[in-house]
């Protein structure tokens, strides 16, 4: 079996890798590029822990093949903070204690960022439905939703 050569952009950096045709983008990110911020909770697109964006579109990286990244622009949790400045969502998650174990947190942050790019002023209901593809078993979602709405408010102000 020969591997495929893929040229892509991840968090703004040019990246090349070789992957098997059946490898998911999540497998490539984690096992080959050692970017383990994206998590595998189900490998079936149900939990959202592996959320990334491809050309600005929110996807579960466990449902995308590694070869599909060819020529695309991938954004992951590792690219969310700029230098030592956390993204407002990251800061608000900390301020609101929106994480307990933290394993779903990267997926929620990537998904929430994608929401705020489309809708800078979501209602609570809009935030809840947008994030319904991300499972959290620890928090009961209350503090996550509060953090997202608070981050949205702050981002609108600045």
């Amino acid at each position: 079996m020969s591997k495929h050569h893929v040229t892509t952009t991840i968090n703004g950096d040019p990246v090349e890798y070789l992957c098997e045709v059946e490898q998911t983008l999540l497998d490539v990110l984690r096992d080959d590029l050692l970017m383990t911020g994206s998590k595998e909770g189900c490998a079936s697109g149900d939990c959202g822990a592996c959320s990334v964006t491809i050309d600005g579109r929110l996807v579960c990286s466990c449902l995308v093949l590694g070869v599909e990244a060819e020529g695309r622009r991938i954004e992951t949790i590792e690219g969310m903070a700029k230098g030592d400045a956390l993204h407002p969502l990251q800061q608000k998650f900390l301020d609101h204690a929106a994480l307990q174990c933290g394993v779903c947190t990267p997926g929620f942050l990537v998904a929430a960022k994608s929401l705020l790019e489309r809708n800078p002023n979501p209602t609570e209901t809009e935030a809840r439905y947008w994030l319904a593809g991300n499972l959290c078993r620890c928090t009961g979602y209350d503090k996550i939703i509060r953090a997202v709405l608070d981050a949205a408010a702050e981002m609108r102000r600045s």
Binding site: R30, D31, L34, M35, T36, G37, S38, K39, E40, T76, I77, E78, M80, A81, L86, Q90, F93, L94, A97, L99, G102, V103, T105, P106, L109
Partner: peptide
């Protein structure tokens, strides 16, 4: 007090190492 969480930044940046994250 609602103090900052020592492991918080690692967990919002994807840096924290969970069970499957070690090679």
């Amino acid at each position: 007090k609602r103090a900052p969480r020592p492991d918080g930044v690692d967990k919002v940046t994807g840096r924290a190492k969970f069970g499957a994250d070690l090679f």
